[in-house]
């Protein structure tokens, strides 16, 4: 099993911590993992993206140039990363924020109204978890149990209610 993932959106959407969460969960599952954030000069509002690899074998290159799956959380990210996706790869689009349609027809596309769902669950802040829930459901890169177990490690200062909201968001995402 090898899953190269790219997550991309605006700074502040939780892109980086979602990537860490995925990598951490992979480690908990006993897989080999790497996480690499694109680090920019801007502190806020810039584009944030990261690559995560979860694999049963040792990870050779930590650089994900042709991802197996992508989470897209804003318009520029769709333009930037859609062309890099592997044929038959998985493209997850947060349609609350991205109105453009993908151009390729050799890939699997799932659009999720993630912000709306997140608000229903409790707060728009957990839109990233809805997306991640969908990703792990489709790719089986890591187990949902590990992600839930890992939440408090990646968000050590999160209150219990927020952890529960995140867990619900992951599960709701898992229905896609």
């Amino acid at each position: 099993m090898y899953q190269g993932v790219i997550m991309s959106g605006f700074g502040g959407q939780g892109i980086i911590s979602t990537g860490v969460l995925l990598a951490y969960s992979g480690m908990v599952d006993g897989k080999h993992v790497t996480f690499f954030p694109a680090y920019g000069a801007e502190m806020r509002g810039g584009t944030a993206n990261c690559s995560v690899v979860v694999s049963t074998d040792e990870v050779a290159s930590p650089v994900v140039s042709t991802p197996d799956s992508i989470i897209v959380m804003n318009e520029p990210s769709l333009l930037k990363f859609e062309p890099t996706l592997k044929p038959q790869g998985l493209l997850l689009i947060n349609s609350s924020l991205v109105s453009s349609k993908p151009k390729r027809n050799d890939i699997n596309i799932i659009t999720i109204d993630a912000n709306k769902i997140a608000e229903e669950i409790g707060t728009v802040k957990c839109a990233n978890m809805v997306m991640l829930g969908a990703l792990i459901n489709r790719t089986k890169a890591v187990s949902l149990e590990s992600v839930v177990k890992t939440l408090s490690k990646v968000y050590p200062r999160a209150k219990k209610e927020m952890l529960e909201i995140n867990e619900n968001a992951l599960k709701r995402g898992g229905t896609f």
Partner: peptide, 10 residues
Amino acid sequence: DGLLGQMMEP
């Protein structure tokens, strides 16, 4: 290099 500094691994 910056990649080794910024990346996370077990």
